[in-house]
């Protein structure tokens, strides 16, 4: 195991993870809202925000899927050392992390059952940037409407149509996070 695996964790987990969770929760409760999220210093290619989500929410009870470049030895060692989360394929995961291009199509992930819609994956999508513009978002958590530069439209619309089944998304870039739960309706923003 590389020394890098042992570093980049939280110095004060109870307080840091409390602050981090609040940012993640605020993002999930207000789809499209961009929040600051710091704490972890994960190995490349993970962003600070994605690493912090993993340290805040993952442990031996949460199977994790690493997609594409995130599925490298440094990240595997780091995740295993700091969280103990079992590394699994997309079909068995509770959390997944990767870029939109690297993540498999959404039907590869558990999307819940009609009796237990919560038994569904949360995808951490690494982005090249986050901006409050692009797709138009409406639904719970949004007073009138919000915007977010989603990497795609149709898959998120299909996901929302499955409600209450479906996947939930955390978009990460640098030390920022935004969320898109399955309850959010996505439409193409009208040209101004």
């Amino acid at each position: 195991m590389q020394a890098t695996a042992l570093q980049g964790g939280l110095n004060d987990p109870p307080r840091q993870s409390a602050m981090a969770f609040r940012a993640i929760m605020d993002a999930m409760a207000r789809p499209g809202r961009i929040e600051d999220l710091t704490g972890a210093e994960p190995p490349a290619p993970l962003s600070v925000a994605a690493g912090t989500v993993i340290l805040t929410l993952c442990d031996p009870e949460t199977p994790l899927f690493l997609a594409g470049a995130a599925d490298c030895q440094d990240v595997r060692d780091w995740v295993t050392f700091h969280t103990g989360a079992p590394l699994v394929g997309a079909g068995e995961c509770m959390f997944a992390v990767g870029t939109w291009g690297e993540l498999p199509s959404l039907d590869a992930f558990p999307f819940g059952t009609s009796e237990y819609p919560d038994r569904s994956a949360t995808l951490i999508v690494e982005m090249a940037g986050l901006a409050a513009a692009g797709a138009r978002l409406t639904g719970p958590g949004i007073a009138s409407e919000a915007g977010l530069n989603l990497p795609d439209i149709a898959p998120f619309q299909a996901n929302a149509r499955m409600f209450p089944l479906g996947l939930d998304f955390l978009f990460t870039h640098g030390s920022q996070v935004a969320a898109l739960p399955r309850s959010t309706r996505v439409t193409v923003a009208e040209a101004v």
Partner: peptide, 19 residues
């Protein structure tokens, strides 16, 4: 403990996603 909080936090996020 931290593991219990993580479990509760995950439940809260799913709760917010499925109002």
């Amino acid at each position: 403990d931290e593991q219990t909080k993580r479990m509760i936090r995950r439940a809260i996020l799913k709760g917010l996603a499925i109002p």
